[in-house]
Design a protein around this nucleic acid. Structure first.
Lengths: 220, 220
DNA sequence: GGCGCAAGTATTGTTGACAATTTCGTCGCA
DNA sequence: TGCGACGAAATTGTCAACAATACTTGCGCC
């Protein structure tokens, strides 16, 4: 019962509340999302909750079946792999575009993230590294300036956040991914689109290979 | 008043009706979609229409702003290019997977589509070629067996259908794309993932190059 | 004890009315 | 004539009640 019980009448707020609740594990996969319960929990009308659920279903975060209500969608290992495969090629595209379009300021930001990552690994800061990882990918997406690709990736990331999080906790994971991340930064700084794309794809291919280990690993 | 005025109470039906209305040009870009109007036109309750609009907004087909209603989303040329760039890499992924997983029956289907395309070009059947084009891409997606990639592509295709359609009408377009399509079929039949991916990407790169011509071309 | 069956409960789907907001036209005034 | 305030119309957002559907529990029967 440590739930976020803040009152939020607006329908748009409910979407955010439910989304973050799912992302933070407050709502676990396959958990039923009863409209009436959510409406009292969030202090919103049932109609607002209902609208929010429709929207989240379209986002792929919840599943809705006729007359049977909504539940948190569970993504299987196979689906997590498929998601990462799509991410691989789309982030590859973004990396290539980023290498083409990056300004000198962009490159400075990327280099700083790279050295911060190195530092985080050196001092064994798993959580800090995970956050930097998120920021690196987000920065590449931003520099690429591809709105459509960004939307697709954001959507996919939302569905996959649980697997992503567990991946970061895997012991020794950082020492594997750090050189890959640095290679991505280097390639973009060299303004070499093809090298940037293949570096990003190699990195995500490595993620995909590691996913099966995480399925039966920590956090479950 | 040639509008689709069929009565459809269910909320799920309304989504389909509005979607096809947009795809077929019944509703043009930037046209306002007033809830009350749609509810009488489709014989559904306003709530059903409202729900449908929320869902279509999540699909990216309509735009909704607070207290200002919904309108058909217009995709600019720049955005159409971005969409096609994402399609390029994701369909490339599907082509590679299809080359890996295709059964002999799958290959027979692909070869038949290829020869039908050749025949359609030979007799100057633009519309038939366009339909075969759609079927080829759909078949590749199906053979790849990538549900996530398929969903992403379906979503993107929905937003782009207008540009796609005008592209097909461009004179001489078929003679450019036919050999590209045949190369895709060949590569998959040779079960060569990398060749299939690069063939698909080359094809869509060609589409992207042609898009600017279509923006000020026929149909407008 | 297991299995169909029926009543009761829980939950979603739908409807209509009302409130809040935006948009558009009109009037007065400089 | 131009411009800003004001008010009416149009439209969306919200709510509570009702109807329809799925789930559960308890009972009789084999």
């Amino acid at each position: 019962m440590s739930a976020v019980t803040a009152a939020a009448g607006g329908t748009e707020d409910v979407v955010d509340l439910v989304r973050t609740a799912i992302h933070q594990g407050e709502f676990v996969p396959n958990q039923r999302l009863v409209e009436a319960d959510l409406s009292v929990q969030f202090g919103a009308s049932r109609a607002a909750v209902r609208t929010a659920l429709v929207q989240l279903a379209a986002e792929g975060l919840v599943e809705r079946v006729q007359n049977r209500g909504a539940r948190v969608r569970a993504v299987s290992l196979d689906e997590a792999i498929e998601i990462s495969e799509v991410r691989m090629v789309v982030e590859g595209l973004c990396a290539a575009k980023a290498a083409e379009r990056a300004t000198d300021d962009d490159l400075a930001v990327l280099r700083e993230i790279g050295s911060d990552m190195q530092a985080a690994v050196d001092r064994g800061d798993v959580f800090g590294y995970s956050e930097l990882n998120r920021r690196l990918h987000a920065t590449v997406r931003g520099v690429a300036g591809q709105k459509v690709a960004g939307d697709v990736l954001e959507r996919l990331r939302g569905q996959n956040v649980r697997h992503q999080f567990r991946l970061a906790l895997l012991p020794g994971r950082a020492s594997v991914s750090l050189p890959q991340h640095l290679e991505i930064v280097d390639a973009i700084c060299a303004r070499d689109p093809r090298r940037a794309e293949s570096a990003m794809r190699a990195h995500l291919a490595s993620v995909i290979e590691t996913l099966p280990q995480v399925a039966s690993g920590p956090g479950r």
